[in-house]
Design a protein around this nucleic acid. Sequence first.
DNA 1: CGCTCTTACGGAAGTCGTAATGATT
DNA 2: AATCATTACGACTTCCGTAAGAGCG
Lengths: 307, 307
Amino acid sequence: MHAAVLRYFEAVAEEGSIRRASDRLHISASAVNRQILKLEDHLGTPLFERRPDGMRLTDAGRLVLRHARDTLHDFARLRGDIDGLRGIVSGDVTIATLDSPAVHFLPEAVAQFVAAHPAVQVRVTACDPIEAMHSVSQGSADLGLTFLPAWRRGVTVLEDIACPMCVVMKPDHELASRASVTLDECGAHRLIYQAPADTMQPFVGDELEAFKRAHKPVAVSNTQAVLKRLLLRGVGISFYTRLGFSEELASGQLVAVPLEGERLSELRLCLVAPSDRLPTVAGQAMGEHLRSALASFGADLDRGDEP
Amino acid sequence: MHAAVLRYFEAVAEEGSIRRASDRLHISASAVNRQILKLEDHLGTPLFERRPDGMRLTDAGRLVLRHARDTLHDFARLRGDIDGLRGIVSGDVTIATLDSPAVHFLPEAVAQFVAAHPAVQVRVTACDPIEAMHSVSQGSADLGLTFLPAWRRGVTVLEDIACPMCVVMKPDHELASRASVTLDECGAHRLIYQAPADTMQPFVGDELEAFKRAHKPVAVSNTQAVLKRLLLRGVGISFYTRLGFSEELASGQLVAVPLEGERLSELRLCLVAPSDRLPTVAGQAMGEHLRSALASFGADLDRGDEP
DNA sequence: CGCTCTTACGGAAGTCGTAATGATT
DNA sequence: AATCATTACGACTTCCGTAAGAGCG
């Protein structure tokens, strides 16, 4: 339905090079080049600066890029909507999520969804809590799975479950049998932190950050996989929600003990959708699927199904 | 930049016929037909119902029409924005207006504007006050010149001037020398009404409508030109704002005497723009031009420049 | 020489208009 | 008969890929 130049232009703008764009598009470089030249001629303005190392967008080019992206995005949506009229769920869904649900809950739920709706292509992007909220409110994601600050804006909560901050450790640790612990009690033990340190501040308050500043850790990492390895080897204890370790907790390899403290224990993981825009057919279906999956997951946690 | 099928599809959808669309596009009917068929094949769904008297949109077709219109509209805007980068104001501007300002004020202001910005194409659409507000808030117009109800929504007021409801008549009428008159006093005279009767109700209240129901007119018309002729011939008196008769009032051919009554005398003509969407370059420029023109026009009225 | 974008040319694909065909009132 | 949409076919235009050219480090 749309002229090929839209895709060509987007590719060149993103790759910063006609050759790289032509590789991506599986089209010869000369063909791409001619379309760009013709477009510039047609609009009466250069859209790229020619540099020795490739193509850089001009101001006019940035406007054109936005238009091309909007058009292609709306067209993808149109196809999904048309399929929706026939009862077929198709299209793309982008989910912005935190690390923790991306470990077990989300892949499981997505796997179920794509089995039921093979025409849907799912993209999962891991990011900060704040970043995730912005992705949803600004349209680069259809759904978000994240903690929400008090000043949430542009998003509506479809479902939320309690997700208290815990101390995670091996079962043979001396704190492992406790019903709950305070932050102060942890200060005496070997600590593993997640970095960057301050992304959780808007959600749990200054208490945890102050503690982290006061007590030096034995290890720091921004990837949950490293944290998990270190915990399993008994290197130390870490602060995390149950979500990121649900398998290890279920199998008894790790233990999670809730932290005392109002804001630490009242953390809630929220499934959010944009409040302004209408969802796509695929986004709507995925939203409903995740909502029920999250609700039953939350119910399991409440019943304490982890042995 | 965009495939021709977008324009073809829009034309067929609007004309309800391939032949009529092909006439409008100055393209052979077979060419238009092939594009439509190819598009339906590409999307895998019929977009039109073939009826003996032409083509009717299906549900999927309605979705495609919306997409095609959005794309073409955004593209027109893009071209205007690109010109804006070079300091040239170009593009389309649509103004939704009431009858009264369309008589003298608006044509004058538009004439000045197009002289200064030859690359801009202006479209003026006359409509009801409510209709004008909706056109602006829903995007089919860039600017509005209208009365606003108390429940205004989706529009911001750029400028507004007092525009009291008056009794308009020939200078030799017995009410012509009065400083103001009440509705009741008018009941004894020959009346000319504007139709349809109820479009002003949200702005001036029930008082005027009740009066119209109680007193039969000698003539009714929905075109201001007819009203003016009748007034000039001394057929009767009419209720109108000064705006529609500014030339006749200035030259002394007609006289306007303010009506007493809170809501009748406090009517304000508002220049409005959409509150949600960003204006186009051309819309922005026209908005500023009309704002200053309206402000100085209002100042003239306040000084009583009409002899 | 490496890299980039750009241009030249022949063949493939697409689009158009004219005109004929089918279908429905 | 009149008015639709659709198909057949030849002329024209556009688009692509290969290959060669021009500028820069």
